[in-house]
């Protein structure tokens, strides 16, 4: 279990924090030291709002070891309102409910449990907006 990695990634996992280029305004998630557009190295932290729509998704039946007990589960690519796309598990919905284009919002959930006695790792997932009128 890689504790330094999870400590290091806490701003991304819990706050969806990326970077904004101070040269051209380009937004990145994950954070980037070099702007892919203007190549500037001058950037600020930028926190994404965590709202978007589903670009594509899959139902994982044969999962990597540490996710095995969760299968089958949904993973999607989400187009955030700010114009950046992220990868996340989809939650609070049945496997059949997923639709390309559906609105989604970020929530913090358990990603996986590292064995019966290991730490529980948390991070962002996406779900249909809690305010059901938006669905």
């Amino acid at each position: 279990m890689d504790i330094p990695r999870y400590w290091r990634l806490k701003d991304q996992r819990y706050k969806l924090q990326g970077t904004k280029c101070n040269g051209c305004g380009h937004l990145s998630f994950p954070p980037r030291l070099v702007c892919p557009e203007c190549k500037s190295r001058d950037y600020s932290d930028y926190r994404f709002k965590g709202r978007g729509t589903l670009y594509t998704y899959t139902i994982i039946y044969q999962a990597p070891d540490r996710f095995d007990d969760q299968a089958p589960y949904l993973v999607g690519l989400i187009d955030l309102e700010e114009g950046v796309r992220v990868t996340a598990q989809l939650t609070d919905m049945t496997l059949e409910e997923a639709r390309i284009g559906m609105p989604l919002e970020m929530v913090i959930r358990q990603i996986y449990e590292d064995g019966a006695r290991g730490p529980i790792l948390y991070g962002f997932k996406f779900r249909p907006p809690f305010n059901r009128e938006n669905r």
């Binding site: 990695r5 991304q12 994982i60 044969q62 969760q70 993973v75 992220v86 990868t87 996340a88 990603i111």
Partner: peptide, 13 residues
């Protein structure tokens, strides 16, 4: 590893 695999995404996925 940090942003795809750690979300539970497999290569097939």
């Amino acid at each position: 590893a940090d942003y795809e695999t750690n979300m539970g995404l497999s290569f097939v996925g």
